[in-house]
């Protein structure tokens, strides 16, 4: 199937690019799988952050450094830290038993971290995205801003209203209300 050319910059044709891509893809999938199978929410969040790091590197590899930066700042940074913060605040540990220190727990995290670190170093040294033809798809923050607030201005408006009503709804549903005694209308 001749589908590859229609997807800009998906396949970096040089060897290192492919190797790094498959390494990162495997690491992302592993981290995500580990994330959804952990019983401890904190561990799950750590693995999800890992997946986001690897995903950001994949974006960088494809020649989209801006998206890579956002993936780090917004997803791995802001959102996941918020998750972690809420989980710790609510003390959502499974069964409430104290966490034992088990060295074997560290093995998958260490392997994933090593892969991520190794790929980062490789990307810094080699930088396959600058060598390839991916430069045409580089979007500067200015280009992105223009597209977002000019061409997609209406979409941004719709999203902002969505977020407003989501916030209102979350506040309304989450706000506790003293139950009336005796009756529970359905």
């Amino acid at each position: 199937m001749n589908t590859a050319p229609s997807i800009p910059g998906l396949w970096c044709h040089d060897m290192i690019g492919s190797v790094v891509f498959y390494l990162l893809a495997a690491a992302t999938l592993t981290a995500t799988l580990l994330c959804i199978t952990r019983t401890s929410p904190v561990h799950a969040v750590i693995y999800l952050v890992h997946a986001f790091f690897d995903l950001a590197l994949i974006f960088y590899l494809f020649g989209a450094p801006l998206v890579a930066a956002w993936e780090m700042i917004i997803y791995a940074g802001a959102i996941m830290v918020l998750f972690l913060f809420i989980i710790m605040m609510l003390e959502l540990s499974p069964g409430g038993k104290p966490l034992t220190v088990d060295r074997r727990r560290w093995i998958p995290v260490l392997i994933l971290s090593l892969v991520t670190l190794g790929c980062t170093v490789l990307l810094i040294i080699q930088d396959p995205s600058s060598a390839g033809s991916g430069t045409a798809y580089h979007a500067s923050p200015r280009d992105f801003g223009t597209a977002l607030f000019d061409h997609y201005a209406l979409a941004v408006q719709v999203v902002s209203f969505q977020l407003l009503f989501a916030a209102v709804g979350a506040y309304y549903v989450g706000k506790g209300e003293p139950r009336k005694r005796g009756e529970q209308p359905s």
Binding site: V158, F161, Q162, F165, A166, V168, G169, A170, Y172, V173, E177, R179, K180, Q184, P185, S186
Partner: peptide
């Protein structure tokens, strides 16, 4: 947009 509003509307009756 409207699914989001409906999620909240469906559970709007908080004592139920």
């Amino acid at each position: 947009s409207f699914t989001l509003a409906l999620y909240i509307l469906v559970s709007f009756h908080r004592n139920n």
